[in-house]
Design a binder for these strands. Structure first.
Length: 473
RNA sequence: GCGCCCUUCGUCUAUCGGUUAGGACGGCACCCUUUCACGGUGCAGAGAGGGGUUCGACUCCCCUAGGGCGUACCA
């Protein structure tokens, strides 16, 4: 353990933890766990206007829910402003940076002229070699880094490979604002260095920033960390991920009924792979994770596949675990009736869960599927289900109620035998009898096996529901 | 505009010069079955286009097209 790996996740608290950020965190986490290193958390709150405490909390909650634990205390970037300023001063002292007294108007004009001339809009370096004594009165200067003017800057990236930027395309960007606060570019470098970050894994929207940041590393004579710029997640249309296409905060996925283990598995497969493996545990992911298996192309977010994977994890989960998630989800999304019903019928729900599991893709669906257990009469009948209840069918339900009432033993085999005998006597296929029963007992066309349903709700309730529908002739 | 990145079935991906281009989701068909699922079997479905390099390219190089990101005293 000579040089432990240190990764970091560095979100800005200007909103919830979105899906792309969650995946970036997942990869940082997996890599650090795989190598036995650390993953640090840094909240990039230097944008005082847009940063909020609520967002910080949402990010922490999101990471916790996903099971992505970080090492050490989270670092608040803004609290390090003084150190950022110090480094800027040192760069100044080293002759690697300089004061610039340009006004915003001057800068704008510079950009417009460059654009008009078909050139990249960059700072022209007019204060780079100017004597500070030429400084105008009363203007607070910014500090700019001296970027190389010739040659090239090479970003050696674990995902993108060797990426070359010509020095002429980089300008002397600002590292310290006129109010003395650091820019993002500068703060990131100083913090990553001070925190001992060895591997930077982040979205490839930062790839060009990497070149600029290398200029600062070089200016300070610091070692540039290893880098891995992962492709962004796109929406189903290939364009930017929009809200309706999955750009939701992770808490939204929780409220939609997705399991954290399913999210981890799904997200891991978006841009990373281990051969043909699709379903794998988090332990396996950690064991297999490697930067070399990261993809270069952007992936599209696909709710359907997420659902499929979520369904898999629901099927695999124990009733106890699922029951707990159903409770917390019902509570979180304000489904009070369901919450109360689940609490009052814990044993029955637990017993029914093995039957419910294979039918649900999300926890919300699981809750819906279990509603027949605590539903109160008059039972709400789904529209599609109600169409089945013709007068003849209601008559049949009355017959069935009579037969079932006479049963001495209330069990799956006994009701099964009784209903089958009835169907046979009437010359009906079992399905013709079972489906109306299902509708009368659950109000839906989808439910566990109908004899199991009868056992779950008990004889009294079953007969009462049957009677209710039979009477409406 | 300029710079950089990307491009295998509809989607996520395997392939690291030689494969009938494999898997998963989705779709379709069939089986199982009291519904719906689950499960099982099978089918359809891809190397953006054009040039090279090579005995041989999905794989290496170039061009084009399409998409993405960046181009702030935002992060």
């Amino acid at each position: 353990m000579a040089n432990p790996i240190v990764t970091r996740f560095a979100p800005s608290p200007t909103g919830y933890l979105h899906i792309g950020g969650a995946r970036t965190a997942l990869f940082n986490w997996a890599f650090s766990r795989h190598t036995g290193g650390k993953m640090l958390l840094r909240i990039e709150d230097t944008d005082r206007e847009r940063s909020t405490d609520a967002a910080v909390q949402a990010i922490l909650d999101g990471l916790k829910w996903l099971g992505l634990n970080w090492d050490d205390e989270p670092i608040m970037q803004f609290s390090r402003a003084q150190r950022h300023a110090e480094v800027a001063q040192e760069l100044l002292a080293r002759g690697q940076a300089y004061y610039c007294y340009c006004s915003p108007e001057e800068l704008n004009q510079m950009r417009e002229e460059a654009r008009a001339a078909g050139k990249p809009p960059r700072y022209d370096g007019r204060w780079r070699d100017r004597d500070p004594s030429a400084a105008p009165e009363g203007v607070a200067p910014v500090i700019r880094i001296k970027a190389p003017q010739t040659g090239e800057i090479i970003v050696q990236d674990h995902v993108q490979g060797k990426v070359v930027f010509k020095a002429e395309n980089l300008d002397d960007f600002i590292i310290l604002r006129s109010d003395g606060t650091p820019t993002y570019m500068h703060a990131v470098v100083v913090d990553d260095h001070d925190m001992g970050v060895t591997h930077i894994i982040r979205g490839d929207d930062h790839l060009t920033n990497a070149a600029r940041q290398i200029v600062i590393y070089n200016g300070m004579g610091w070692t540039v960390p290893e880098m891995a710029h992962i492709p962004l997640i796109h929406g189903p249309d290939g364009a930017k991920l929009s809200k309706r296409h999955g750009a939701l905060g992770v808490e939204a996925y929780r409220q939609l009924g997705y399991l954290p283990e399913a999210m981890r598995n799904y997200l891991a497969r978006l841009g990373w792979s281990h051969g043909d493996d699709e379903i794998f545990s988090t332990e396996q992911m950690v064991k297999w994770f490697s930067l070399e298996d990261l993809n270069k192309g952007a992936a599209r977010f696909d709710f359907v596949k997420l659902e499929s994977i979520n369904g898999h994890y629901i099927r695999e989960a124990t009733p106890d675990y699922l029951y707990g998630v159903m409770l917390s989800t019902a509570k979180e999304v304000g489904r009070d009736v369901d919450h109360a019903g689940l609490v009052a019928n814990k044993d029955t729900v637990l017993a029914a869960l093995p039957e419910l599991k294979p039918r649900a893709k999300t926890v919300l669906e699981l809750i819906d599927l279990g509603q027949f257990i605590y539903a109160t009469r008059p039972l709400t009948i789904e529209a599609a289900a109600g169409e089945l209840l013709t007068p003849e069918v209601r008559e049949m339900l009355a017959d069935l109620a009579d037969i079932l009432r006479g049963l001495n033993e209330w069990s799956v085999p006994s009701s099964d035998a009784a209903v089958r005998a009835y169907a046979e006597a009437k010359g009906l296929k079992l399905g013709k009898v079972a489906q109306p029963l299902r509708v009368a007992l659950t109000g839906r066309t989808v439910s566990p096996g109908i004899f199991e349903v009868m056992v779950f709700i008990g004889k009294e309730e079953a007969l009462a529901r049957l009677a209710e529908q039979a009477q409406r002739r």
